[in-house]
Simulated assay, not measured.
Amino acid sequence: MFSEAELLAVFRALSNPTRRQLLVWLKDPMSFPGQEPEDVEIGVCVTDIQQRAGLGQSTTSQYLAMLRQAGLVVATRRGKWTYYRRDEENIALLLETLRDVF
C-alpha cells in the first residue's frame, strides 16, 4: 500500500502532461530510435528521452527525477549515462492502492 505522502508524490508527478507522456513512452522502450532488445532491461537513455520530448536536458532530468521520487520509474547508471524504465511492480501496487482507496 502507498502511504498518503507517497500518493501525494505520485499525483504531483502525474499532474504535468509531459511527465505523464514520458511515462507512456517508457511503456514501450523499443519505440525509441536506436533501442536494442538488450537495452530494455536497463531502460532508455535520458538523451533519447530528451530528444523525443523536445525538452532541455535540465528539464528532462527534473521531470524524470520527479517520476523516480514518486516510485514510477527506476534509474540505472552506466558510465556517464543514465537510463530510465518504468517500475511496473510499483505501478501495479499503486493501482491496487487506488482501487482500495477509491
Rank of each mutant, 00 (worst) to 15 (best):
W81P: 00
E38Q: 07
G54H: 00
K80P: 00
E96G: 12
L67V: 10
D28R: 12
L26A: 10
L14A: 09
A53M: 07
T60E: 01
G54P: 02
V10Y: 05
R77P: 00
S58Q: 13
D100G: 11
E88S: 13
G71M: 05
L14N: 08
E38F: 10
A92H: 07
F11W: 11
G71A: 09
Q50H: 01
V40D: 01
A9M: 09
L26W: 02
L55D: 02
P33R: 03
V10Q: 08
D87F: 07
L22W: 04
V46Y: 01
T47E: 14
Y84Q: 01
R85W: 11
L14C: 08
P29H: 02
A53L: 06
Q69H: 11
L55V: 06
R77Q: 13
F11R: 14
Q62I: 15
L98I: 15
E38Y: 09
Q51A: 13
N16M: 06
L98S: 05
W25D: 14
E38A: 09
Y63T: 02
L8K: 13
P29N: 07
L64T: 11
E36F: 03
L26P: 09
R68A: 13
C45L: 10
R12K: 14
L67D: 02
E4C: 04
R52A: 05
Y83G: 02
T47N: 06
R12T: 14
V24D: 09
L95C: 08
Y63S: 03
V101F: 09
